[in-house]
Design a protein around this nucleic acid. Structure first.
Lengths: 242, 242, 242, 242
DNA sequence: GATGAATGAGGTTTCATTCAT
DNA sequence: TATGAATGAAACCTCATTCAT
């Protein structure tokens, strides 16, 4: 259990052969597990509880999943997969839109909104991901983070397009994409601090403004300069500079 | 002992009476625990491992902490406490600076930089907080989140000052503060995505630009308007609107 | 888990669902435990030892009992239950016997003998009860003592019947019943002092005489009077009266 | 801890040399321990708690006692010692009284009352004895039971005297003495069943009557005979005789 | 003689996983 | 394929006892 390197022999991925039956079972179990994992934490949830909630016997759970950890991975990656599928679709659309001369800003807002909505739908998975990624196998963790990377890359492309079109200032594109993702995810992860927004809709508009603020920020232009620019010529007292 | 609830003995918070010894011991143990918790996760780290790493016997660990969970709380809250102490000091400074006519922008950058540096120093604690806050007792979790709230509030005040001075546009101050915190923390929490920055220094300048971008974003002005404003008059095709 | 009070999961009384298997298992474990508890005491007997003696793994014991303490309660109350069932049967018989004009003395002797035999059979349980009742939960202890009370009550009724019939003198019936129970139990509890009797049979006859002696004693008539009655007119010297 | 045969090397009985200081310390500690042992049980009481209650450090307790178990033995045997001392005194008195022609009945009542009063005073020790004798070393347990034997023997002598004087019927003297002790101790041990008596005084008089009833019972004359004698000629139906 | 921190063996309990039915 | 009892490793925590100060 401790070592994530010296890992157990992987058996056949599951005992259930019928593909459809397998998938349905996995989904039912995972759904039950998600609630429990979030409520009690992954480690404080026993397989027995999951089985009970899913209306199965303990043994059956292990017919559908090789290990408890696999349930976790299923939950994390299935959220991701869903997101990626969505983006794949968008990617095609966007090519068309670009050719129709759509503004990068509109494209971005469109994509970002989609992502935010998705994050809202998969809010529980997202939270779980933040909390329990480390409980995955090394290999699984790697796979998961690669998925994240791909999603981030999708936004990098959009931003790059905007920069190329001259609509956004140049700047560290990768960083900006990172920030945008983090802010969208914070709706799930730091939800307690956003309790003033009861639904995503209320959060979405201000979030988009902020996102645009980020896109339009010029990270080439150092803040030191910015500070100078505003003409106030304020200099921090020496003792604060240390 | 579990069921002997009615006979449960309230115990002193720790066995060690000498204040200084206690503190040193707690810190040594916590330091050992932090590494292990991050590496293996809180639940996959046994007290024995912590004791070993700290150069103590298992029993001794429980002379310094009442429970394993108390170690976790110690780690999370000690980071917080350190942050809060820093802000308390700044608060005084800032009052002086304001009277000297310091620009809100400078004030903010000063504070934000401080916070980022702190988050970097306490990077491991921050990560732990994201992952394991849920492992705390309800009461402790509450206390912890209240601490986060206070820190956020500090930034809200600064932003409010900037708005009052007319330097920042009005907007959802609370939301902006939230975003700023999240971005600073993401240096710790999503560090894998920022591997292009080897040290905080490199991340700090672009981050400040982005932060200013957020502050200057106008969340009153709805993005819808913005979209209209840019004159491209682009309308999303119907099928994407659903 | 100790401090995780708020997350505590209520658990089913035992893991094993098959009623018959459950019962058999519980009895096997309890039997093993009884010997060990008596030999080493409840607290000096580890669950591991019990499991070993019962031919099970440690974990399995907890499939049949929720806690070690539950084993203790099972032992104590199962003895009691058996006694109570016996008395229930007798109660019916006695109603018939009364109507047949049976002498209260005969009734009592019949019942007392039964109880003595039972106590002998459950000797080990009885000893355990004297020693470990305090190790029970408050609620369980209460339940257990209520059972004792019911048994005592059964004898109170018989005595009351004898008094009503004019066969026994009036007197504190409750007290007498208490004494009778205690004496019967002492065969188990203070067995070391009765080593001159190798089997219950030898003890039983003299015990019955003594029991009758108690029933016929007149606790209304104060011993002081008794002392006077015997004509010796002995008066304790002053200094001994204090 | 488990084996009571392979026992640890006994060190010097205590670290404190000054005899008086030692005794005082032991008594203070034992007094504190008695309450705790009764309240929580011997095994659920830690030495730390005892030390705390006695106003000492943990280490100091082990200056006065070699082990925790020694405290228990101290408590059990000190009660006994006190009882024995009392009886030693009485023994002398009784010789005188006998020569003065005192009635055995009066002698007995005198002694029995004394014992009852003592048991009341040492009620807590008595209860502890019933519960925790088994926690003693084999050797200590033996010593303790020998003490009990001596006390019982004292009563046997008195009864024998009464029989010799023709005041009590012959019968199993040892058994009767046993019963008398048990009944007196039941005031402590089964106190919950005697709650109708608020103080010993109320219990004492009826108890004395019952005690006389026991003394006057004729355990030579078998109860079978007794049953015949009462002329009712009642015969138990066959099915009950088995 | 007093202290109290250190020790580490040992206790109860949980739980992922296996496997006979 | 479904079941659920059996397993045993490992977890957290307690506590009698020692010993340096």
């Amino acid at each position: 259990m401790k070592s994530q390197v010296l890992r157990k022999k992987r058996k056949a991925p599951s005992q259930v052969t019928d593909e459809k039956r397998l998938q349905e079972g996995q989904e039912r179990i995972a759904a039950a597990a998600l609630n429990l994992f979030l409520q009690n934490g992954y480690h404080n949830t026993s397989v027995r509880e999951v089985a009970q909630k899913a209306g199965l016997s303990v043994g059956s759970v292990f017919n559908y999943f090789t290990s408890k950890e696999e349930i976790l991975f299923f939950l994390l990656s299935s959220g991701q997969v869903r997101a990626e599928i969505g983006f794949q679709k968008q990617r095609a659309e966007f090519e068309r839109l670009k050719q129709d001369g759509a503004s990068p800003r509109a494209l971005f807002l469109r994509a970002y909104e989609r992502y935010a909505v998705l994050t809202d739908e998969l809010r529980r998975n997202t939270v779980l991901a933040y909390q329990e990624t480390k409980s995955l196998t090394l290999a699984e963790r790697k796979r998961f983070l690669e998925g994240e990377e791909r999603i981030q890359h999708f936004f990098e492309e959009i931003i790059a397009y905007g920069v190329a079109q001259g609509e956004f200032p140049a700047g560290n594109i990768r960083l900006k994409a990172h920030c945008l993702l983090v802010l969208a995810q914070s709706w799930a992860v730091r939800h307690w601090a956003l309790s003033s927004f009861t639904k995503l809709d209320e959060y979405l508009e201000p979030l988009k403004s902020i996102a645009l603020g980020i896109l339009e920020s010029d990270s080439q232009q150092t803040p030191a300069l910015v500070a100078a620019q505003d003409g106030k010529d304020f200099v921090l007292p020496r003792e604060l500079t240390s």
